[in-house]
């Protein structure tokens, strides 16, 4: 690990100011991705600005028919939230399946989506639910926010403050974990909106990160049952392929996880 300077910001304004002053600053959430990266000497920020103690970035509240979750809220808090369980059960179960207990008690929603690991779980929920990402500069729709593998629409130094998740009449997430990392090899979030429309978002499998499955969405809008998606798989061409699973295997997992998510929703 390289040596670095640690700062704890008390407000968003202070965080922005500390970042502006730093030679090569980085926002620090739960540190579950950034610190291992630094330990492997793949990142060497001069300054770390910890945003997890900023009051307005913490906590979960009701927001219309859905919920708004502060960016510094940990995965464990989301998983345990009665409000989330009641409004969007699929989101609570997704958060409860991230990593292990230590990771869930440190890692944050904001850090996860800002990092946009192609195998991270949250992006599937944001896209399927049509969430809005609120930053210190603007509001971004989930599909605009995630722009490619480890890439987002965030500007340098832009801070994710919270995410607003619209409610769903049915939702579920089904994940096949990578045996080593336990990130998603294929994770499918299925959300049925109040108007009966359905969104299906896939993480872990795509070369460009999270993507939607329009064919599944159409099939489920007319028949919200596992069988409706049993014959639908993504084109293996755009899928990840590595020592843990070929693109063809991942394509199969997408179908199987979609069936299981629909069954659980």
């Amino acid at each position: 690990m390289y040596e670095t300077n640690y700062h704890r910001a008390g407000s968003i304004a202070e965080a922005a100011e500390l970042m502006a002053k730093a030679e090569d600053g980085k926002l620090l959430g739960g540190g579950q991705t950034l610190l291992p990266t630094m330990k492997q000497r793949l990142a060497a920020p001069s300054d770390l600005v910890d945003v997890t103690k900023i009051g307005e970035m913490n906590g979960i509240c009701e927001d219309g028919d859905g919920v708004a979750i502060g960016a510094a809220t940990t995965h464990a808090e989301v998983a345990a939230s009665d409000l989330v369980k009641q409004k969007i059960p699929g989101l609570a179960s997704l958060a409860g399946g991230i990593g292990d207990p230590a990771v869930r008690h440190m890692g944050t929603l904001g850090g996860s989506i800002a990092n946009n690991d192609p195998a991270a779980d949250y992006p599937a929920a944001l896209v399927a639910l049509g969430a809005i990402v609120k930053t210190n500069k603007r509001d971004l729709a989930a599909e605009e926010f995630f722009s490619g593998m480890f890439e987002t629409a965030l500007d340098e130094d832009e801070i994710v403050m919270s995410v607003r998740f619209p409610g769903a009449s049915a939702s579920a997430y089904s994940k096949y974990p990578n045996p080593a990392s336990r990130y998603a090899m294929a994770g499918v979030f299925v959300a049925k909106a109040g108007d009966g429309s359905v969104k299906v978002a896939v993480t872990g499998a795509g070369q460009d990160g999270v993507f939607r499955m329009p064919e599944m969405e159409a099939a489920l809008a007319s028949n919200f049952a596992p069988d409706a998606v049993a014959g639908i798989a993504p084109d293996a061409d755009g899928l990840l392929s590595d020592i843990h699973g070929s693109a063809a295997y991942r394509a199969n997992l997408v179908t199987v996880m979609a069936k299981r998510a629909v069954a659980a929703a």
Partner: peptide, 21 residues
């Protein structure tokens, strides 16, 4: 689960717990 995998150039593909199960 476990396997030390190399690519043909001799890079160890499983050099961390992200890939070595």
């Amino acid at each position: 689960l476990e396997n030390a995998a190399y690519d043909e150039t001799g890079q160890l593909l499983t050099a961390s717990y992200m890939d070595y199960t």
